[in-house]
Write a protein that binds this DNA or RNA. Structure first.
Lengths: 224, 224
DNA sequence: GTGTTCATCTCGCAC
DNA sequence: GTGCGAGGTGAACAC
């Protein structure tokens, strides 16, 4: 990884056209040749960048330094014009062991499938990721009377999720072995608008208690 | 901006729980106190980060360096345990003049509004951003016969955009001053599935020629 | 490869 | 503040 602090201007031509006026910035050049330009705020997003795979060509034209970064597949172009280099250092980092995550949608699905009776006594799991022509339904199960129920799981329940479940239900209800199929929209948090739309479509809403499903004290986790 | 290359492990507890094992990485500490941890690949996304507003507390416990970053509003926590610092430098950058963009949806909307006859001879603009209860319709106009037309503009036309326009049309058609309202889905590129759904809903699709609208040679832009 | 969906999405804007 | 939509979204996973 090469760290450069420099006064530079940047031009990007690709999915859009963008320009950064001359100013001091951080330029990150990583081992995969990807380049990102950072200002002195915002943790997440660089001002400008080029994703791998790409190639960097360094040129010295009329005493002004120019770095051209070209994407290998799309031909997108990022051109840095450098007026003054204030810092330049390189470091060997090696490949990263990577991030270990917990608490995402897949895990919610897993937990709810394991504890399907959370939705009602006597309910049984048919299967997770029940395949349909337009995609997999998160969970297909049966209620205590044997009626089919399709469950759509989201971390945060939005209007889109209700639309998605609606499309699944429309399709599933064409299958005589399943019909009639009820819908349940399950999420850790459901937006009011999504709740209204769900009610209008005859879909029940269920709030998922992540920690409860894990059987852990429902308390804010602390590190130390 | 402070640049630190260090062997570190990272724990994040907040919207999810995540852990990075001990390894050499870049730690960026910006002027707004935001922190991001980068591996030696991927231009865009840090391995881990904390957005502003946040506070950093540095501690030296049992000879091992610990940086705790806590978000000011949500209480999210990022804890860095540092084993060895390989590089540490600070740089004054000042505030950035910012990115100038061109070619986004707003500009497409502007251009199409200016050249509304692109959609048909004798068509007239009613207004851009026509407000409804569920949000603004990109363009409302009238065709050569005076019939109302709602236009949804996207850079890339996806199934979501068709759903969105459908909701607007449903609402607009309840207004007796406007009904019946036709729909047009306009984008630089329209996905086949979106096209099928639009056809099914009686919505016309129009491909927007960005350079054509600008009156510029429809050629790939090159920098030099 | 293309398509679909998730994300600690981030970010901006309007109400 | 909250909601909604855009993003050069990026990234992962299925087909």
């Amino acid at each position: 990884m090469r760290l450069v602090i420099a006064r530079c201007s940047v031009d990007y031509v690709g999915r859009l056209t963008a320009h950064l006026p001359m100013a001091p910035r951080l330029i990150l050049i990583k081992a995969d040749s990807s380049v990102s330009i950072h200002a002195d705020d915002r943790a997440f997003k660089p001002l400008n960048w080029m994703n791998p795979p790409c190639k960097i060509r360094e040129e010295d034209i009329d005493g002004s330094l120019t770095w051209s970064v070209i994407h290998g597949k799309t031909g997108e172009k990022l051109v840095l014009t450098i007026e003054e280099i204030l810092h330049d250092s390189s470091h060997e980092l090696g490949i990263d062991p990577g991030l270990q995550k917990d608490g995402v949608e897949a895990h919610l699905q897993e937990l709810l499938a394991e504890h399907i009776t959370t939705l009602g006594d006597g309910w049984t799991l048919v299967r997770r990721e029940y395949m349909t022509a337009i995609g997999p339904v998160d969970i297909l199960c049966r209620d205590h009377l044997g009626g089919s129920v399709a469950v759509e799981i989201k971390r945060r329940g939005d209007i889109d999720g209700v639309e998605q479940l609606t499309r699944y239900l429309e399709l599933l209800n064409r299958d005589p072995r399943l019909a009639p199929v009820k819908g349940i929209f399950a999420a850790q948090e459901i937006k009011p608008q999504a709740r209204v739309l769900a009610a209008d479509r005859g879909i029940d809403c269920v709030i998922l208690d992540y920690d409860g499903l894990r059987g852990i004290e429902p308390e804010n986790p602390t590190l130390f």
